[in-house]
Amino acid sequence: MPLLELQQSLISALFQRDQLAEAAKLVKAQGSLSSEQRVGIYRNSTHGILLDYLESLYPVCLDLVGTEFFGRTAHSFMDQAPPTSPFLADYGAGFVTYLAEHPALQDMLWIVEVAKLEWARHAAWHTVNQVASDFAQLEGLSAAQQAELRFQLPASAHLISSSTPIHSIWLAHQEEYPDKPRLEEIDLQEAQQVLIFREQRRLHQTTLSADDWAFLNTLQQQATMSELAEQFAEQLPWLFSVAMQEGWIYSFTTD
């Protein structure tokens, strides 16, 4: 049997339980373990490695639904969507959608919102480094150039608007966090706007006021300075001051 077929048969068994018996035909039975049990060790190991990874990606969801539910859901997710990239950090975005379709979560879809936040944290952490603009160079611009200025958030920025308080729920699950909200006091009806971004070696996660939220969203849609002035009027200098000091604005372009 060529190597190709052997490997296809074995890897199928890792992600399709009903292929175990077929793959076991390739394997010697030795000692107290049957050949099917031996293939099973690899199925368990592969699943265990990926479960560990998913648990570390979605630690708050893990707490929210408990290890048993999380484990079962993660295992069936892996079988449905095995990894296709050697870069492990690429894996697991689809878990959010998988949770959203889970029959047992249809009355608790706010948990899926928390999963979105956790994936955004992961994605932001792995976003590549960028070079910030030198804002001192704004001084030399003509009035026409000033009107055409556009500003960018860090490439790692994720703006998440949620109908549930995902930031508070996330905080409530952090150990040793001062003044964290108590789980019992969280009001699921409270909407929250959250910004996540990476600044060098640190990941920032914060809620935004409605004004800041609207401002950053408009920035991200690449509105020009004159459009911003139109929309935010007298508030604009203040909005920019806050955003600059918080590190929410990273660069500008003049074209």
Partner: peptide, 8 residues
Amino acid sequence: ITLPKGTC
């Protein structure tokens, strides 16, 4: 299908 049994 199990049901979620955690902090939720």
